[in-house]
């Protein structure tokens, strides 16, 4: 087995030491610090970016809050406006209704009065007619002379009786 032949042991060890020591020193002094610096740089960059992102997020949240606040304000404002407009309209309409009521009732009253007046007038006329008819009938049926005052009183009496 060539592995157990000590002929080249010294040479193998010699070249192993040279190559491995070179590799070790090169990696230790050059390659590994480079990789390490790249990674720390990247880590720092990531940390910075995360920090920035968090800051931006906080700002965005602030803005969002402000928007919400304004939105709420606008909502309550509009609700108030609607409410006040509604109340105003209600007031106006009730006022107008009242006015209408008043004017209608005055008109009704006037009409009522006119009717009443007409009624009494026509009643008076009817009484007069009754009196006249009564006087005519009495004069035609009998010769009794009755004066107008008596007839009026009699008719009045009968009327009272009829009504009561």
């Amino acid at each position: 087995m060539p592995q157990l032949n000590p002929e080249f042991f010294a040479s193998q060890l010699f070249w192993l030491v040279i190559t491995f020591v070179f590799l070790f020193i090169f990696l230790w002094r050059v390659s590994l610090p480079r990789i390490n610096s790249v990674q720390t740089k990247r880590e720092n960059k990531i940390k910075e970016d995360i920090k920035k992102a968090k800051q931006l997020q906080a700002e965005a949240e602030d803005i969002q809050e402000q928007i919400n606040k304004q939105l709420d304000q606008a909502k309550s404002d509009s609700a108030e406006l609607i409410k006040s407009a509604f109340v105003k309209l209600q007031d106006e309409s009730s006022k107008k209704l009242e006015e209408l009521d008043k004017s209608l009732s005055t008109k009704i009253d006037a009409t009522y009065e006119a009717i009443e007046k007409n009624k009494t007038e026509s009643m008076n006329q009817i009484y007069e007619q009754i009196n006249d008819i009564t006087k005519l009938m009495i004069s035609k049926i009998s010769n009794i002379q009755v004066n107008e005052g008596e007839i009026k009183m009699a008719v009045e009496k009968i009327r009272q009786k009829v009504i009561h």
Partner: peptide, 28 residues
């Protein structure tokens, strides 16, 4: 006897490969 042998060639290739690869691929 410290002859440069085929074994030494492999060692040198190995070391050169590692050092060159780790140096050339990493852009700081």
């Amino acid at each position: 006897d410290l002859a440069f042998t085929n074994s030494s060639v492999s060692m040198v290739i190995t070391v050169l490969f590692i050092t060159l690869f780790l140096t050339l691929t990493v852009n700081p």
